[in-house]
Computed example of a mutant assay.
Amino acid sequence: MVDTTPLLGEPLALDLVNTRPLGADLLATTEQLADWLARQSERHPDLALDRPTAADLTAVHEVRDHITAALDALMHGTPPPADALRALTAAQSAAPATRRLHWDGTAVVATPHRDAPPAARLSAVLAEAAADLLTGPALARIKRCEADDCVLLFLPAHPKRRWCSPDRCGNRVRVARYYRKHKE
Rank of each mutant, 00 (worst) to 15 (best):
R121C: 05
E128T: 14
K143C: 03
Q40I: 00
P11A: 03
R172T: 06
H102E: 11
L47T: 05
Y179A: 00
T53A: 08
A55C: 12
P96C: 05
V125R: 13
G9D: 12
H61G: 03
W163N: 00
P81Q: 09
K143N: 05
E62T: 10
L134H: 07
K160V: 03
P159I: 05
H76Y: 03
S123E: 12
D3K: 03
A69T: 04
V60L: 10
A90V: 07
R141L: 08
R64L: 05
L22W: 08
R39G: 05
L14Y: 01
A131S: 13
N18G: 03
T68K: 11
A107G: 11
L47Y: 07
D25S: 11
A59G: 13
A130Q: 02
L71T: 00
K160Q: 15
P21L: 01
A48T: 13
G136L: 05
V151H: 01
T78A: 14
P52E: 03
T106S: 14
L122T: 10
Y179L: 02
D104H: 08
E184V: 06
A13M: 01
D46F: 04
T78G: 07
P79I: 05
Y178V: 00
V17Y: 00
L57H: 03
W103P: 10
K183G: 00
A24G: 11
L88F: 09
S165K: 04
E184G: 15
P11S: 05
A138Q: 14
H158N: 15
L155V: 03
L47R: 09
P80A: 12
P156R: 04
F154E: 01
A34P: 12
R168P: 00
V175Y: 07
R39T: 09
I67W: 02
P52C: 03
D148Y: 05
A129L: 06
L16N: 01
L101K: 08
H44S: 08
A119V: 05
L88I: 10
A91M: 14
Q32T: 04
P159Q: 10
G170E: 11
A157I: 10
T53C: 06
A120P: 13
C169D: 01
E42N: 13
T98S: 12
Q32S: 09
W163R: 02
R86I: 14
A59S: 15
P6F: 00
T58M: 09
A127L: 05
Q32E: 15
A129K: 03
V63N: 08
R162T: 02
R121Y: 05
R144W: 01
R121S: 03
R114G: 04
E42P: 06
S93H: 14
E10P: 09
L27C: 11
A120S: 13
D3T: 07
R177F: 03
P156H: 04
V2K: 06
E184N: 15
V2D: 10
R121K: 14
D3C: 06
N171V: 07
L16Q: 02
A13R: 01
V175K: 11
K143R: 15
E128C: 11
H113Y: 14
K160Y: 07
L47D: 13
H113Q: 13
A54D: 14
K183L: 03
P166L: 10
R180H: 04
R86E: 15
Q92T: 15
Q40D: 04
